[in-house]
């Protein structure tokens, strides 16, 4: 095994079950079992996906809605275990699959920083040390003591990005994170990602914006219907994807 690889994906396959008629309860289960009508269609969200990513590299994943981009990130983040194939990930993974996924609306921003930090594997003491910096970066000011439910989506995104990137991660998974937040904040986020990238972080970046992909990533991958349609340098793939 190559220690230099941050991600090794071999022939990955993920399918979801799509019952032809929804089975939601016991009654349905009995009725369908008697009629022998339970037909479950497998919908392959990803199939035959193989790639390798070296440490410190960054890859931009492009593709239309439903192409399997988010599913791929979830496999890397260990949320979905592959039904087929194998995935090996080395290093601390900081997933940002939809910003604010680990947040609880009833808690204050302050409490959510600790919750999210813990989920990312940081102890309370470690979060405590980073706390001021996180609040600073998120530009939330006194809102930090208000419940998250009163935040705008941009504020949630800022807090999530600030918390998730407070420590330099080995591997950063970013799913459409720059679609929220205003331009200056996006600039700030990109700046921070570039900084980590130059210091050894591996980045998997999902975006519809081919320009951002070109800016951040060295490599590119184009997914279509769950399979790799094209793979190469970020420049090539982004241009081809845009040209379609």
């Amino acid at each position: 095994m190559n220690q230099n690889l941050a991600i090794q994906a071999e022939n990955l396959g993920i399918y979801f079950r799509m019952p032809s008629e929804p089975i939601s309860g016991t009654k349905d289960l009995f009725v369908q079992a008697v009629k022998r009508k339970i037909k479950i269609n497998q919908f392959w969200a990803l199939r035959h996906v193989s790639f390798e990513l070296k440490r410190g590299e960054s890859i931009g994943i492009m593709g239309r809605n439903g192409a399997g981009k988010s599913t791929l990130l979830k496999v890397i983040a260990r949320v979905l275990t592959p039904k087929e194939g194998r995935i090996i990930v080395r290093g601390n993974v900081f997933p940002m699959l939809e910003l604010g996924a680990g947040f609880v609306p009833d808690l204050t921003g302050h409490e959510n920083i600790y919750l999210y930090g813990n989920i990312l594997g940081l102890t309370n003491a470690e979060v405590g040390k980073l706390y001021d910096e996180i609040v600073d970066f998120s530009e939330l000011g006194d809102f930090i003591y208000a419940p998250l439910r009163s935040y705008s989506s941009g504020m949630v995104a800022r807090l999530a990005f600030a918390t998730a990137t407070a420590v330099q991660p080995d591997l950063l998974l970013a799913d459409e994170i720059l679609s929220v937040g205003d331009a200056p904040f996006q600039e700030k986020c990109i700046h921070r990602m570039m900084h980590y990238l130059s210091h050894g972080t591996t980045i998997v970046f999902v975006s519809h914006s081919t320009d951002t992909v070109k800016k951040i990533c060295s490599r590119g991958m184009w997914l279509e219907h769950g399979t790799v349609k094209m793979s190469g340098s970020a420049e090539e793939v982004a241009d081809a994807y845009k040209a379609q």
Binding site: R78, T81, P82, R86, I87, I88, V89, R90, G91, N92, V93, G121, L122, E126, V167, Q168, D170
Partner: peptide
Amino acid sequence: TSTDPTPVYDSA
């Protein structure tokens, strides 16, 4: 997390 030996996740 920063001083830990690199954690490895292998689905197999």
